[in-house]
């Protein structure tokens, strides 16, 4: 039967693609995971020579590495919070009001992403020296904020725009003032989009290395900046352990938000024509 042959061919193709994608995504992760627990693992050997937890002990015993973790866990939430305070009102304005220069502002937000980051940071460093912001918490937060502005503006703006006007009008008609309408209708319906933006911003701040290194080093080292020295100065296995630690928050966050964002509430919101 030709259809059966086609079915079989399709299945083989699908399976092949899945293996390929899994290989690309999971391969490096498996390699990292193996190294983090291996005593030694060199090219011709298919398996590591032995297993050990020593490298984890090294990482947690090193005071600098522990401080880097603490720094990262401080900067990322602070960045997300400040970014939300600054960008969410802007996102609402972009979505709901039309004002002169709206498009220019909106597209202009991409400017920070359009240039090579390093060039931008060097230019900023010049300014930061003048303002005494080098090696300060504020300086690092500003650098991190720049990386989150696009996420925190564009995604929530789209989320606000997707809330049908009639839902807000119905609340006005029911007697609610503008602030109440925003609080009870607009914000809850845009929340999934805002959460996505927060996760993206958190990860952007969490992974930001170049600017942080330039502005913060050596007083303030975060996990990504510490990675640089780890790769150069420690055995591969320590870098592997650190890389695994660095990926934990991302994975946890994505799993948490996936439940909420895919939970159908967003889809329900869009059923309203």
């Amino acid at each position: 039967m030709p259809t059966m042959a086609r079915n079989l061919g399709g299945r083989i193709l699908t399976a092949g693609l899945i293996v390929l994608v899994a290989g690309f995504i999971l391969g490096p992760l498996i390699w990292l995971g193996m190294h983090a627990f291996a005593t030694r693992w060199r090219y011709p050997n298919l398996l590591p020579d032995g297993l050990t937890l020593d490298w984890w002990r090294v990482v947690f015993a090193e005071p600098e590495l522990f401080a880097a973790m603490q720094n990262t866990l401080f900067f990322a939430p602070v960045t997300v919070l400040l970014s939300a305070i600054v960008c969410l009102p802007a996102a609402y304005a972009f979505s709901r009001f039309s004002f002169p220069g709206r498009r220019i502002f909106l597209v202009g937000l991409f400017a920070t992403n359009a240039f090579p980051k390093m060039g931008l940071f060097v230019a900023m460093a010049t300014v930061f020296y003048g303002l005494n912001l080098m090696e300060t918490t504020l300086g690092i937060v500003i650098v991190h904020l720049i990386g989150t502005v696009v996420f925190m503006t564009w995604i929530p703006a789209a989320a606000f725009s997707s809330v049908p006007r009639s839902l807000e009008e119905a609340a006005r008609d029911a007697g609610a003032g503008k602030i109440r309408v925003f609080r009870t209708v607009t914000l809850p319906l845009a929340l999934p989009g805002i959460l996505v933006a927060c996760v993206m911003s958190f990860l952007a701040s969490f992974d930001e290395a170049q600017g942080t290194y330039l502005v913060g080093a050596p007083s303030y080292m975060t996990m990504p900046t510490e990675m640089y020295s780890l790769v150069l100065n420690y055995p591969t296995q320590v870098a592997a352990v650190f890389a695994l630690l660095l990926s934990i928050p991302s994975v946890v966050l994505l799993l948490l938000t996936r439940r909420y964002i895919m939970g159908g509430q967003l889809a329900e919101g869009f059923q309203i024509r």
Binding site: P164, S166, L167, E169, A170, A171, T184, V185, P188, L189, Q265, E268, G269, Q271, I272, R273
Partner: peptide, 8 residues
């Protein structure tokens, strides 16, 4: 016209 019920 579209009822405008709040989906949440």
């Amino acid at each position: 016209q579209n009822y405008a019920l709040w989906p949440h």
